[in-house]
Design a protein around this nucleic acid. Structure first.
Lengths: 142, 142
DNA sequence: GCAACAATTGAGACAGTGTGTCAACAACAC
DNA sequence: GTGTTGTTGACACACTGTCTCAATTGTTGC
């Protein structure tokens, strides 16, 4: 991952390694602030801005991808570069990426009907994953 | 619009009227902060929290609908209740709502393939409207 | 019209998620 | 080892809200 940064002309620094270490191997999505909090424990001198900047860089080189959670807050997940969308579990945060994009046809039609020059779109699907669905809720419904 | 509020058991108050006045008749989307700024001029005593609360109430009774702009920030637009999506001009902010939702098929397939219990989705399309496209940019490209 | 009640308000503190600045530092090329 | 320049950490600031709480106001019943 570090080499990938170097390949893009970014320097390999201690703080960046720390962020990469904190991020690599995560299957679940995470927010920038989660990484900040975690690194505060192992490397208290590491600044908040550095974490934000590094995550941004990692996303820009497609090591991470950024997406919106159900509450509208941004989060990151390792991998899944390219044109993908996400199916996000509202309960545990598990993300399933999918490449099938049903918007293409729609975009063509919208473009024709409205004469807009379509630039992009945002599609996120929210639901509850099988694990969370099977688990009984912490507080039993009355 | 005020009667609609009353119909839902909300009181018709001065501040709420002011917010409704500021909002009604707008064809373009607006952010809560825009309304706050505008009302600051005509009714400086009106609080920020009140504007946020009132917009939220108006959205809850389907007088407004809330959506995300291209930059991820929330905005409101008058009307368009129900299941709609938005095509947003990244330049002037014009919104075109559309009801056609290509996600239904996808949701069914995703649900089958991933075993998620799909709850909802977020779809916004971004582009440049014909007016903005025809206008020469303020700073000529070099 | 008036009083009582409860909803609503305004002010301001606080939170989450970033961005911008700037002097000090450190990675890298030589 | 040195010089250059990208990077860092600290911190201020911005935006978009949410929350609290005493004061105010709309509404209802008389």
């Amino acid at each position: 991952m570090a080499e990938l940064l170097a390949g893009h002309g970014y320097r390999i620094t201690g703080p960046r390694r720390a962020v990469i270490d904190a991020v690599v191997g995560r299957a679940r999505p995470f927010t920038a602030e989660q990484i900040v909090a975690e690194l505060k424990r192992v490397a208290p001198e590491l600044g908040r801005a550095t974490v934000y900047r590094t995550l941004e860089i990692l996303a820009s080189v497609d090591v991470l991808s950024r997406f919106l959670r159900a509450d509208g807050h941004p989060a990151y997940i390792v991998g899944v570069p390219g044109h993908r969308h996400h199916l996000v579990c509202s309960d545990c945060g598990t993300v399933v990426a999918f490449t099938r994009c049903p918007v293409d046809d729609l975009v063509r039609d919208l473009s024709r009907d409205t004469d807009f020059a379509i630039q992009g779109h945002l599609l996120e699907v929210f639901g509850v994953c099988p694990e969370c669905r099977d688990e009984p809720p912490a507080i039993a419904p009355s």
